[in-house]
Write a protein that binds this DNA or RNA. Structure first.
Lengths: 154, 154
DNA sequence: TCATGAAACTTCAAGCTTGAAATAATTGCC
DNA sequence: GGCAATTATTTCAAGCTTGAAGTTTCATGA
């Protein structure tokens, strides 16, 4: 979160960038989390899972979710468990491979997500309001390239 | 973590930026967390607390730490508890105000942190290696301004 | 066939995180 | 002085997170 022992020298600019990046995303994330809780009584991880499923009406495997959301398998299990118990998501056993199950949004889950996502988008617009749309595109480009370069994924 | 229902329209560029920002910081954070665990058997929150204390040899109050690190008070309590039990940090009761205590790195904590911070810095340099130092400075500037604009803090 | 290994998940312990409620100490006001 | 409000911190329940270990199912080659 913060700097190391010294504060000048090679690599310091990258360290400073990382600290900024982390502080920015933590600040915004905290604000979004709080609003999701207050306005919709839900959480960011639940929202993330529902967002992923919303993009895939045919459903996703647990491991797909895990890979896409960059979180561990066991983590997804717990979040999906809670979403299932709230009736927002279903686990459908498949005929082909009985180890896996397709996770899908229910009709209720889908409608619920659409409402939340709309608010979420306007919150992000507000929180990033001082970044012009043009600047946003440039920043996005930089972030995209450095990440895909680093790990090869994308 | 991911986009909302539609994928074009006003504000979409900011939403995309936010998604990139979040993915970038999560990816880097996950890698750093893993290395901290493997190489030094510690965690990112512990590292963050120690980094804050390293900058303040005179010590910090719990509430200072909480504010600086952007995490809740109760959270800091737990992390400091563990650091104390590991001998890396001390809580010194103050004469003036008996509600508060000054948290400081021990000598061991300070030496331990210096070693970890050095590795941490080179990891960040590696992970952000595709960003030039110049680009890093520009990105940092953008991130700095948008956050301080948004909440007034800094 | 059927054993061996791989794949998809779940379970679990430990730690992180928040927000709310509880404690304790201080400050300010009468 | 004494009491109300404020401040600093801890405690707690619920949920998130990881990595390791365990379970079930599938694939494959002798």
């Amino acid at each position: 979160m913060v700097a190391g022992p010294s504060s000048a020298g090679p690599g310091k600019d990258r360290l400073r960038l990382w600290i900024r990046l982390l502080r920015a995303s933590r600040t915004i994330e905290a604000e979004l989390r709080e609003r999701l809780k207050k306005e919709f009584d839900t959480t960011l991880p639940r929202f993330d899972v529902m967002a992923a499923l919303y993009r895939s009406p045919e459903g996703m495997l647990m491991s797909d979710l895990s890979r896409f959301l960059l979180v561990s398998n066991g983590n997804v299990t717990g979040i999906v468990d809670r979403l299932v118990s709230e009736g927002l998501v279903t686990r459908a056993r498949r005929n082909g491979d009985r180890r896996t199950s397709m996770v899908r949004l229910t009709e209720e889950g889908s409608q619920s997500f659409a409402a939340i996502a709309s608010a979420h988008e306007s919150w992000v617009g507000e929180l990033l309001g001082t970044v012009s749309e043009d600047e946003a595109r440039r920043l996005t480009g930089m972030l995209k390239s450095f990440r895909s370069n680093w790990e090869g994924r994308e």
